[in-house]
Design a protein around this nucleic acid. Structure first.
Lengths: 203, 203
DNA sequence: TGCAAGCTTGCAGTCAGTGCATCTTTCGCT
DNA sequence: AGCGAAAGATGCACTGACTGCAAGCTTGCA
């Protein structure tokens, strides 16, 4: 509703591009796909591709430009009284719920990245892009200086790690649980201070 | 001693290339440097550059091919009785001590990456490359399955985050402390379960 | 309806990165 | 020393990602 035709078309083109990229990569492998092929499959010129994605990898991973903004918004929305990890956990739950809508897509892209190291690395790098922004919000909440106190960055980096691992778990277990449940699991471990597990008992 | 002329020359060329890359980038910015220029400055052919580094960015960051191996060795060397975080902390301390020898270089490269997002992202991605290998060792120690239990990956991801943050702190504080001290600081916070800090009291 | 802003596109170019064939250097062995 | 094998360096030719620029369309809005 809030958007006009222009915005809708842009969203459609973006989707078409990243979907085409994914499908082609599934068939030919990431290196077998060219930007030209992706553009053609999406019915757009190669030059236009780069109006939407900064790189081929970004299209393959379906990078969303305002994920950062949304994550930050989710964090800011948490009550001020919460501790850092608590708030980040809440943010992660919400993000998981949002992502659940495109679980199939996410699964496929994860699978692709899993078997192609450069993609996996690009994915990891994406997470680090968000770090600073979130750390600034945590710093604000805790009254610390993000450049002098390790706490905010450490809390955020830890939380993002928990999210990454949750996605891995969610994937490796064959999607037998909701992403949000996996998130709860990893954050619970964190909240307990990563207690040394008893070998016999599988978590 | 253990190496012949061949190995020594290779190490020298690698060093020459990454040093040349750094210096040129400091003057012209990462985008102002070409592989050709780096190769020439190092007295080697452009084609040879790629025998040493997989990408221009890797040379700028001074990526070391056996860092992974060393980290793993440091982890394996920890006594079996230690808990996961304890062992990872020990590993990190040792890595920090090793890196201290090239602190100036590390500082310069950190500085460069700090002001050029793509480099910072490549740096972050490097960390994730090590994750799996270390997690497998933690899994072995704890008797867990790295693909089914979140604990090993979570512990490692958390520890690597602590190392990254330690480097950031070490940098942001103007190198007023040893890297190993920063490592101790972040791991101590972790061991305490990231307690919500009292705003007034730093650290 | 018409102007302005925003997108798309083509063009031309730079440069990273790769496979292959060849030449040179080092190593291990006698 | 000296020789054959292994490893490294180099040149060449090529693909394809990515960019800036200067038009052309489309949409939004008055």
């Amino acid at each position: 509703m809030s958007e006009g035709l222009r915005e809708r078309k842009k969203a459609e083109t973006r989707k078409a591009l990243s979907t085409a990229a994914l499908r082609l990569a599934q068939q030919l492998g990431p290196d077998g796909v060219t930007v030209e092929a992706i553009a053609e499959a999406a019915g757009v010129s190669p030059r236009t591709f780069f109006n939407y994605f900064g790189s081929k990898e970004d299209a393959l991973l379906g990078v969303n430009p305002n994920e950062t903004t949304q994550l930050l918004a989710d964090l800011v929305a948490r009550p001020e009284g919460e501790g850092a990890l608590e708030a980040l956990h809440g943010m992660a739950r919400r993000a998981a719920a949002r992502l659940e809508a495109e679980a199939d897509d996410m699964w496929a892209r994860y699978e692709l990245a899993q078997s192609h190291p450069p993609l996996a690395m690009r994915r990891a790098a994406r997470f680090s892009e968000v770090e600073r922004v979130l750390a600034e919000e945590i710093a604000r909440r805790t009254g610390l200086d993000v450049d002098r106190d390790p706490y905010p960055m450490l809390a955020v980096s830890t939380a993002l790690g928990a999210i990454r691992v949750a996605m891995a778990v969610w994937h490796d277990r064959g999607r037998t649980c909701a992403l949000a449940d996996a998130v709860d699991e990893t954050f619970t471990l964190l909240a307990r201070g990563l207690p040394s597990p008893i070998p016999a008992a599988g978590g």
